[in-house]
């Protein structure tokens, strides 16, 4: 009996590929939770990071908030949210978003701050509006670093989204929680493997996005 046997047994059992508890359903649920959480976190972290990075103001407050947010344990937050809000998607989303905002916010801020000031000065001197300077001069150069912040946030979300199962939701956490409860270690290992594979796929996805979205001029100059 070893881990590989568990994995083999789990994935070769055709019952695991069908129905509401089948791999495709659980995988899709997991991806959906992750996408929603990442979307909300990016919706908060990116604009705030871009603006504070561009103006250079609020950097200290920002890193303070980020440090505090990092100190919050996701599972503890989940329990708290469950007590306050009851069952549902919201108590799951809040800890995931709290987890993901700091890396996005801080790297985006740092990425924009570290853009070479001379092209920005040149752009301003030739009469470019501030919004255009941010989006067309700073963002394209800061993009690789911003993507790396999004990537680490995404990986953390994917691995932490398993907690959804504790509040009766789906996702790959179901296999781990149920497997532990049923002492079905095949299921536990199978679920954990799927989470790991999804994390690797996320890495691959970000690599591809980087190839497509980052200008060759930036990729080579850094």
């Amino acid at each position: 009996m070893n881990v590989l046997n568990f994995i083999n047994a789990f994935f070769s059992d055709s019952a695991h590929w069908k129905g509401y508890d089948g791999i495709p359903t659980r995988l899709w649920e997991h991806i959906l939770y992750s996408l929603v959480a990442l979307g909300i976190a990016a919706g908060i972290g990116l604009p705030v990071g871009l603006l504070t990075g561009h103006t250079g103001r609020g950097g200290n407050a920002l890193s303070l908030i980020a440090t505090a947010a990092r100190a919050l344990p996701s599972f503890g937050l989940l329990v708290l949210m469950f007590v306050v809000l009851g069952l549902g998607l919201l108590p799951v989303m809040i800890p995931l978003v709290v987890l993901a905002v700091p890396p996005i916010l801080v790297t985006t801020y740092e990425a924009v701050r570290s853009v070479d000031p001379s092209p920005v000065d040149a752009a301003r001197g030739m009469g470019m509006h501030e919004s255009r300077i941010l989006l067309q001069v700073e963002l394209p150069v800061a993009l690789p670093l911003i993507l790396s912040g999004l990537r680490s946030a995404a990986i953390q979300i994917v691995s932490t989204a398993t907690i959804a199962a504790y509040v009766s939701l789906g996702g790959l956490g179901r296999y781990i929680v149920d497997g532990l409860y049923q002492r079905d270690y095949e299921k536990v290992v199978g679920g954990a493997t799927l989470v790991a594979v999804l994390a690797l796929a996320t890495l691959g996805l970000f690599w591809a996005v980087g190839r497509l979205a980052v200008s060759p001029g930036v990729r080579r100059s850094n």
């Binding site: 070479d116 001379s118 752009a123 150069v141």
Partner: peptide, 16 residues
């Protein structure tokens, strides 16, 4: 500013 060209020491080109 658009009626004045502006050139700085390290050119300040847009690398992207």
């Amino acid at each position: 500013r658009r009626s004045m060209g502006y050139v700085i020491q390290n050119a300040g080109l847009f690398q992207h």
